[in-house]
Simulated assay, not measured.
Amino acid sequence: MRIDFTKMHGLGNDFVVLDARNPAQALPAMDAALASALANRRTGIGCDQLILLEPSELGDFRMRIFNADGSEVEACGNATRAVGLLHGAPARIETLGGLLSATPSDTGIAVEMGQPRFDWDAIPLAYAMDTHTMPLAWEDLTNPVGVNVGNPHAIFFVPDPYAVDMERLGPLIETDPVFPERINVNVAAVTARDAITLRVWERGVGLTLACGTGACATAVGAMKRGLVDRKVTVTLPGGALVIEWREDDGIVMTGPATESFRGSFDPADYGFAAGSPD
């Protein structure tokens, strides 16, 4: 039995979306091995994240997120915009990082990302420290802001994000024991009171063209330090997102999402058996 999929992206951060809400779509049990096989850009369909949509008792549907290495993660802002576009109407989306809402509009998809958390054990870190200016350094990358926006981020403010050797430093920081659940690594430059330039090393993925939660975390980190106003444009290699941190503490991310193509695959080609319809 072949399985239908939709290939989508948000500013180049790309996804394979599988819809398990229809019982006639007999998906195999999703695990790290299948997710990484489908995400492989040489032998699979190819993506940064595999997205699995399931029924939910809390929202309109549940979204599960698997990184290219097969690890399941809590949140993905770009994927939330993508599935919001696919759904085609305002939706409440259950994730491991909490309940999110996505609303399509003429300017893109607006996503209510919830409230940021700054407590050291909410990020989490291996031991207590000030997350506003963490007393940590990896060569010239020093004193990051720590914030959890559904998943964990460390944000370094630098003169030029493109001068940082992220392919070397990104994996070192991601897997440092101070971050027991690993970490997303952000390097950012504030260019105006309403503008930030950002690059992201995403845990389990690597360098990415765009990261919605990274844009949210970086914007909030800059706001927390008083570097920018409460609404900013964050420009990533793949394009720009507008991030607003409202007075009620909620974060709103607005930006585009795109459907690339649709197709199908046979799980047996990857060594997996399809499930059976109910």
Rank of each mutant, 00 (worst) to 15 (best):
D4K: 09
D4Y: 01
T6R: 09
M8T: 13
L11E: 10
G12V: 02
D14E: 03
L18A: 00
N22W: 01
N22Y: 02
P23E: 04
Q25L: 00
A29S: 03
M30T: 08
A35V: 13
A37Y: 06
A39L: 13
N40Y: 01
G44T: 03
G44A: 06
L50Q: 10
L50V: 15
I51C: 11
L53W: 15
L53N: 07
E54I: 10
P55T: 04
P55C: 11
S56M: 14
D60I: 10
D60L: 08
F61I: 15
F61K: 15
R64S: 07
I65H: 07
F66D: 01
N67G: 06
A68H: 02
E72S: 11
E72H: 09
E72Q: 13
E74V: 03
N78D: 02
A79R: 00
T80C: 09
A82P: 01
L85I: 04
L86N: 01
H87G: 00
G98I: 11
L99V: 14
S105Q: 07
D106E: 12
G108R: 00
E112D: 12
E112V: 11
M113R: 00
G114Y: 03
R117G: 02
R117M: 09
D121P: 05
D121S: 14
I123Y: 15
I123V: 15
P124R: 05
P124C: 05
T131E: 06
H132V: 12
T133Q: 05
M134F: 14
P135V: 10
L136A: 05
E139I: 03
D140P: 11
N143C: 07
P144I: 11
G146K: 08
G146I: 13
V149K: 06
P152C: 09
F157K: 03
D160M: 05
Y162C: 02
A163M: 14
V164T: 07
V164F: 11
E167Y: 05
E167G: 04
G170M: 05
L172M: 09
T175K: 08
T175W: 08
D176V: 02
V178N: 12
V178G: 14
F179D: 12
F179R: 05
P180N: 12
P180I: 14
P180Q: 10
R182W: 14
I183L: 15
V187S: 04
A188Q: 15
A188I: 15
A189Q: 13
T191Q: 13
A192W: 01
A195D: 08
T197R: 15
T197W: 08
T197E: 12
L198N: 15
W201P: 03
R203S: 03
G204F: 13
V205F: 06
L207S: 09
T208I: 03
T208P: 01
A210Y: 07
T213K: 02
G214E: 07
T218P: 03
V220M: 09
G221M: 06
T233G: 08
V234D: 14
L236V: 07
P237K: 14
L241Y: 03
W245S: 07
E247R: 06
D248H: 04
G250R: 13
T254W: 00
G255R: 00
A257Q: 01
F261N: 05
F265I: 07
Y270G: 11
Y270I: 08
Y270C: 09
G271V: 12
F272H: 12
A274C: 11
S276F: 08
D278Y: 05
